[in-house]
């Protein structure tokens, strides 16, 4: 059972990370802030979960990294979506929509 929930949470985290990289490339901190902002501070991701997820996604080939200058002129590691990652994102969004619709309809009608 524990695995299941983990899967769900991990899937959600992956989705959020990939989505935040959809528009532009960001460094880890940027991803964190972006998710926080766009969720109106409802979703706070801990760095202890973010970085392992980033490393895993990179190994799986969904995102890639390079080095760039940050807004405060410091060298930072930037992540961006790969083509494979884009496809995964589209798939995941669709899946998530179906899932949430289903949940919502259960909550409303059951």
């Amino acid at each position: 059972m524990a695995d299941k929930t983990n899967d769900l949470l991990q899937g959600a985290l992956d989705l959020l990370v990939l989505r935040s990289l959809y528009t532009e490339k960001r460094h880890g901190w940027g991803i964190l802030k972006r998710i926080q902002q766009s969720s109106n501070d409802e979703l706070i991701i801990h760095q202890g979960s973010l970085y392992p997820a980033l490393y895993r996604l990179e190994r799986q080939g969904f995102i890639k990294s390079d080095f760039g200058l940050s807004e405060n002129n410091r060298k930072a590691k930037y992540y961006s979506l790969t083509r494979k990652g884009k496809r995964k994102l589209e798939r995941e969004i669709e899946k998530w929509n179906r899932f949430s619709t289903a949940i919502v309809s259960v909550l409303q009608n059951a």
């Binding site: 801990h46 760095q47 202890g48 970085y51 392992p52 997820a53 490393y55 895993r56 190994r59």
Partner: peptide
């Protein structure tokens, strides 16, 4: 807030494979 950097560096290593 950051927590123990070593423990999650280990997690990163794992994720890295």
């Amino acid at each position: 807030e950051f927590g123990s950097p070593e423990s999650f560096k280990e997690d990163c290593r794992d994720s890295w494979g």
